[in-house]
Design a protein around this nucleic acid. Sequence first.
DNA 1: ACAATATAGTTTGTAAAACAAACTAAGTCA
DNA 2: TGACTTAGTTTGTTTTACAAACTATATTGT
Lengths: 149, 149
Amino acid sequence: MNNNPLQNQNDLSIVDGLVQLSFLVQEILGRVGAEHGLSIIQLRLLGILRDREPSMLQLAKHLNLDKSSITGLVDRAERRGLVERNVSPNDRRGYNVSVTSAGRELIQIGSEEVERQLSAAVEGLSETERSQLAALAAKILGSSVSSNE
Amino acid sequence: MNNNPLQNQNDLSIVDGLVQLSFLVQEILGRVGAEHGLSIIQLRLLGILRDREPSMLQLAKHLNLDKSSITGLVDRAERRGLVERNVSPNDRRGYNVSVTSAGRELIQIGSEEVERQLSAAVEGLSETERSQLAALAAKILGSSVSSNE
DNA sequence: ACAATATAGTTTGTAAAACAAACTAAGTCA
DNA sequence: TGACTTAGTTTGTTTTACAAACTATATTGT
């Protein structure tokens, strides 16, 4: 992924940097998840349910998946006792999905672990650089309003 | 994924920033891949083969997958005419996997598209900020020598 | 040289993840 | 009420991933 003749390997283009960085982060997420038997998508599911009780359809939008994929995803998480389907009070067709206390515990432990491992990954940066990076990330994320609300 | 009482939503922690940024990048990679019928893992496979002809086992290490997963991955790419297995000259058990011209074309088009879309994602940053970001990414990637050589 | 061992890759069996199309049940609207 | 829409599931397929068992070839020690 380095095609730009103006840059050598040790001086990554911003595109290459972002791509490789994303793989590094995803690798950490995958590893932490795996320690608790969770895939990245299950991790994301729990992460979303931390502060929301979305319908299946809303989950599909959040995760950018087809609604038919959500059925299985929630099924498996429910089977493991991590989430629950609650019949929607207004619409008997729909469910609101919520995290159980077991699920909440798991995501708590998991995100602490992610926190540790990601902090370790950026420990080579100075405090200034870290907050610079956080600000830059926020700026990018803010402008590319992925709107998965 | 925001648990730190010292930060509000618009002022992401570095951990949250990195995680969300990684999902943004992966989403772009997934979308671009999908436009050409490629999954992220197939994209990575072609990306690796751009400047290498690794054995199946080396591919497994690069991609951090079990060797048995590589068989199917390469099978499917080979079926689509994107890569080839070449019997290793020194070891008749082994193969060196190489990208075909069709595969090379596809990865070329794909990475140009990734380039475009990622550039668009960072267009809110100034030139200075972009090179800062590239430098920070490189620094993180450099210290966490993932060693998948 | 050759038996024991190691290595490269595939096969087999299983499960998760994802999609699309068809379907069911419940809501809405004219 | 009948037509239509919406929420979610089912069905069937494909890809991805793993682990254990297996095959074929290399390597090593004696």
